[in-house]
Design a protein around this nucleic acid. Structure first.
Lengths: 228, 228, 228, 228
DNA sequence: AATGAATGAGGTTTCATTCAT
DNA sequence: TATGAATGAAACCTCATTCAT
């Protein structure tokens, strides 16, 4: 019998679909175009995926799996929060540079106005919320981070900055927007460094884990140690 | 442009179109539905706007004008940066709550993958970049804000947080996402307060503008040494 | 504005659709072909009819309305059953000759294997069942028709013969089939005459309304009066 | 024809195909589903049958063979026509109850609008026409049946009633239709009895074959004078 | 000029048929 | 040879855009 789609072909299909969905959005992406570009027939797509939406969901799952894997690898329970932040920032930028289409998929779901928004959000945000909130709470308990901000909010703001970092690197609009702030040049190293400073300030992080006193004092006192 | 449509009718058309584009997305919004709901015939819409995209662009211009006006009103050259931050945050949340469709329009353009991205970005980001960078640079010069971060980056990160604030309040996906971090309840006041704390920390701002000792003075004093 | 489809065009559409559905069946008939042949666009069909099925149902309603009208006109409460039979037979044949596509529509619904069968049947059979059963029951009460057969069964058998008469005249297969029984020639007059004889015999009809005795006796006794 | 499929497998294939074609109609029946349900691969089906239509034709041949066998068994040259009628009616109902799919196949061919109609009709109607006309002509010659109706017409009307009997028992639409005449209950015995009475009346048959007086003798005696 | 019905290209999806293994 | 996955034509249906009135 005819060999099933090789893993390579299935890979090609998903990669192509991610590119189409990511770059055009779920509505404008055409199944027939995905078929044409991936070199397989329309029919076979519908053998593997019930309909266009199922194909999109598979692309999404793939994208969010990659994102989660990326984040999972970047996070090491042994790291200080400062280390974790810097690693995450570096990893996010690097991932987005190498995989802009996954970032575009991620952005595509944020555009969902309907009922699927909750389902989409769950595929990735539940995970990041848990991870980041956990790390931050622990750091607060250890006194490494200011305590006058709810860890949930800290995690949200932190993820907000990481999402934007992703979009800056992976989405056309954000890339154009960045230029109005930073000019034409793309200096990922400087971006990393500056964002680390920004976030450490926001978190009230001291690189050395000072013992001791109340959160506010630490939070502000630690500003001196933010020196680069 | 033809002048048979009264200003009121044009207003109605744009408001309706913004609602449709915002709530359904640019693809799912139907010109005929906009015509029906606005009480203006399809033919007239096409007299005023070359095609659906031109109508969308007009909606976008309107949305970004509203955003710019909102920001312009919130910014007062006499304010301290801390005051400006808090005012902007409050205004953003309030605006997004009252005008979710404008925020959705704003989000829609961030999804633009093609050449129009630069044009879209220019309609709003150029303005915010200029405003925020100006304020921050001035604050740095006055010693009110840390100087070890480039004002352009500070402005970008600040705007990142404000954009996400908008989307949280106006877009379905971000709203669902927020729940994974903060739970079901929506407490705009707490959000404001927490984000103000976060940003102040990031900016190295202290509330007291008093001279003399204490963390603020130290914080700003050291900022000068951090000079880039 | 563009004039709505004229009555003439709507008529053309339905006539064409009846032809397509009747000759090809609901599955093989193509909306695009109906559009092409009726000289109107696909889009306008979907303006007038929600989907293909709704168009089919409209064709069916038209066909069954015609059939019902035809039957209604043929039935006259003043007629004897014998007169009614002959009139109905003549009318059926004549109708089927002039409107084969309506007969084909009628036949098409008899082919429905699914849940719609009951709905389809109701559109026409409920009416004929009521009419025929009523007429026959009345004739039985008057002693003009044998009473040893339930009027409902008499009506069913009678309608069976009329349906087949329709199909003989309107459907290709039945027409071919008829040739195996009757040869190539089509003699509607003879068909009428022979079927009238057949049915009168089956009904035990006496043209003169004899008074009196039991149904069985009448039924067989009347055979003498069946003379042509 | 290839011979790798065992007879049993071929049987299974045809039985399954008849079920699919019969229950879903020729259009809605899917070759892949027939393959799946019969446990025979699609490829093999296409080795044995040029295309879907050829498979359908094979199913049809099988169905009409079954019908012919059924009729052949029911007909006994020694029977009186009255006996033959009753036997045929009983057999038809019983066959249709046990083999609805064959009846549905039979009905399916009546829907054929094209050139194949003649071919289809030949596969079954030629046979029944010959059988019924023969029996009836013989009965007329023997004086057992009225002679004022052409035996060919008598045979056609008789077969019309039998076809409808088949469809009543085997096809959804006709089953629904029957309810409008006879109500929900299905009483095959009463149907048989009533139809026998109806047909005997139509044929001018009397049960007693005794010579002498009484309605029967009159009935047949007069038949001779009705000579066409 | 304004209307909104008509147009028809283009999208999704199915399934008869083919053919590489 | 038998398999059943792959193919791709063709069907339904939508909606941006046009244009007769």
């Amino acid at each position: 019998m005819l060999k099933k789609l090789t893993d390579e072909q299935q890979e090609k299909l998903l990669v192509t679909a991610v590119e189409e969905f990511g770059s055009k959005g779920p509505e404008r992406a055409a199944v027939s175009e995905i078929a044409r570009r991936s070199g397989i027939s329309v029919g076979v797509i519908y053998k593997y995926y019930r309909n266009k939406e199922a194909l999109f969901d598979a692309c999404l799952a793939r994208s969010t799996d990659m994102l989660k894997a990326m984040i999972g690898e970047a996070v090491d329970r042994e790291d200080t929060l400062a280390e974790a932040c810097e690693k995450l920032i570096r990893t996010c930028i690097s991932f987005a540079r190498r995989n802009p289409h996954y970032i575009q998929m991620y952005h595509a779901i944020t555009h969902e106005p309907g009922e699927k928004a909750a389902y989409y959000a769950e595929t990735i945000e539940k995970y990041t919320a848990m991870i980041y909130t956990g790390i931050i709470r622990k750091a607060q308990e250890e006194g490494a981070v200011r305590r006058d901000i709810d860890p949930a909010y800290l995690a949200l703001f932190f993820d907000n900055l990481l999402m934007m970092l992703h979009f800056d690197a992976g989405c056309r609009y954000y890339n154009e927007r960045r230029k109005f702030y930073l000019g034409e040049a793309e200096d990922d190293e400087k971006m990393t460094e500056q964002l680390v400073l920004f976030i450490k300030g926001a978190f009230g992080i001291t690189d050395s884990v000072s013992s001791g006193s109340g959160p506010v004092a630490e939070g502000t006192g630690s500003a001196q140690e933010r020196e680069v």
